[in-house]
Every structure is written in structure tokens, then in C-alpha cells.
């Protein structure tokens, strides 16, 4: 049984002029435990919405999203929060670090709502991403590359089964992007987490053995064109 299994996933929004528009229609998608897959997609193609649906941040109009056997789309919100906190790590393009908290606290909060905050684990994760000497720095005191490394440590601290990465190198220069990507892939592998990364950057996509076109996956894009 795959770690992530999606079937007949539909998500639509009401546009400002009152029209209902389907953004995501994925008939079938799956990801095995420990698998690393990159999705190629242009801006505005619904990639973020797709990841939000998998993470339970958004609810689908219909369809199922099985994460480790639990249907994210069928659960009540509080159970979706729990499932997300215990099984999914999320890495954002804009890092989304909490500016009022230290690096260590950011990582601790990555665990707090799931398995529980573990200071030693949080510290070890920050050391793993090369920030053992920046534990008590605030995000704004770090470079953008360092901030993304904190985000990686936070996403993996709770030992998630699945890591979702949304354009994780989009805000980084070439060197930092390459380093961040390597770090994400390595730490996912070390922690046994599957990785689903979305990007439009050929260099990033080129680093993956498995790459799929989101346009192929998301039938809503074809329906719009048709």
C-alpha cells in the first residue's frame, strides 16, 4: 500500500465574478514510502493548492487523499490537524519561519503539535543542517540560505512520513538552492521520509530521478484549455 494515495480529487474555487472554477482535478496519484518525486509545473497551475489538499490545509470538494491509510479528506478538521502534525512536514518557498521565535523554538514548534517537543532532537536537526551554532538566533538574523535550512530542520524534526516542498529553492541563489536541495533530499532519505517537491526550475527538477508533469496529472488544466 502506498504512503500517499489520491483518487478522484477535485477542488474548485468561486472566482470574483461568481463563477466556480476547478483548480485541481487529479484522478489518481500515489507516492511510496521513502520515494522522492518532483512535480514540474508553471506558476498558477495549482501546485500549491494540490500540496495544501494533501496536507489537509484545504479540503477537497470530492475524492480521497489517503496518508498512511487515513483519508485526509474525510476527517474532521481537528483530526486533519493531528494527521498533518504527525505525518507531514512542509517546506515553503518563503520559508514561513516564525520571526518572533529562535531557530530552536521554530524547530520545536515543528514537533509540538505532533509527537511533542523534543529539545535534543530539535538541536540535533539544527546541527545536521549546519546551524548548531545558531540555535538562539532569530530568523531575521540569518541569511536566506540559512533560513531555508531552519525550515528543512523544522519540517523533518517530527520524523514525518511525507515531506511536501513547495518551490523550496525559489527564493535562493544558485549555490544556496543547490545546497538546500541536496540537504532536503539527504535529510528525507536519512529520516525515511518520502519527498514530494513541486518546482518550475529545470535545475531543481534535473536533480531528481523521478519527475512528473503536473499538467499531465492535473486534469483541470486540460479542461480549462479545452
Amino acid at each position: 500500500m502506498p504512503l500517499l494515495a489520491i483518487a478522484n480529487l477535485h477542488k474548485s474555487f468561486v472566482t470574483p465574478d461568481g463563477e466556480r472554477k476547478t483548480i485541481v482535478h487529479v484522478p489518481e496519484f500515489s507516492l511510496a514510502a521513502g520515494q522522492q518525486l518532483a512535480l514540474r509545473g508553471e506558476s498558477g497551475s495549482g501546485k500549491t493548492t494540490f500540496l495544501h489538499l494533501i496536507a489537509g490545509i484545504l479540503t477537497a470538494d470530492s475524492g480521497s487523499i489517503l496518508v498512511g491509510g487515513s483519508d485526509m479528506n474525510a476527517l474532521a478538521e481537528s483530526k486533519r490537524d493531528r494527521l498533518r502534525a504527525e505525518n507531514i512536514g512542509y517546506i515553503f518557498q518563503t520559508f514561513n519561519l516564525l520571526q518572533g521565535y529562535s531557530c530552536l523554538e521554530n524547530v520545536l514548534l515543528g514537533m509540538a503539535f505532533g509527537p511533542g517537543a523534543d529539545r535534543a532532537r530539535a538541536q540535533a536537526m539544527l546541527e545536521r543542517v549546519g546551524l548548531g551554532h545558531r540555535l538562539h538566533h532569530r530568523p531575521r538574523q540569518l541569511s536566506t540560505g540559512q533560513q531555508q535550512r531552519v525550515a528543512v530542520a523544522r519540517a523533518l524534526a517530527a520524523r514525518p512520513k511525507l515531506v511536501l516542498a513547495d518551490e523550496p529553492t525559489g527564493n535562493l541563489d544558485h549555490r544556496n538552492a543547490r545546497e538546500a536541495l541536496t540537504l532536503i533530499r539527504e535529510t528525507c532519505r536519512e529520516n525515511g521520509a518520502a519527498l514530494l517537491l513541486v518546482s518550475h526550475d529545470p535545475e531543481v527538477l534535473g536533480a531528481f530521478e523521478e519527475v512528473r508533469d503536473f499538467a499531465e496529472l492535473n486534469q483541470a488544466l486540460k479542461e480549462t484549455v479545452a
Binding site: R82, E86, L109
Partner: peptide, 16 residues
Amino acid sequence: RRDIAILRALGAGRFT
């Protein structure tokens, strides 16, 4: 709002 959204994405419940 952004902090709240980030915390929710990390798994914090609305009631928390």
C-alpha cells in the same frame, strides 16, 4: 495572521 497560518500548517488546532 501569517504566524497563525504557519502554526496551523505545523498542525496547531484552531482551539489551541
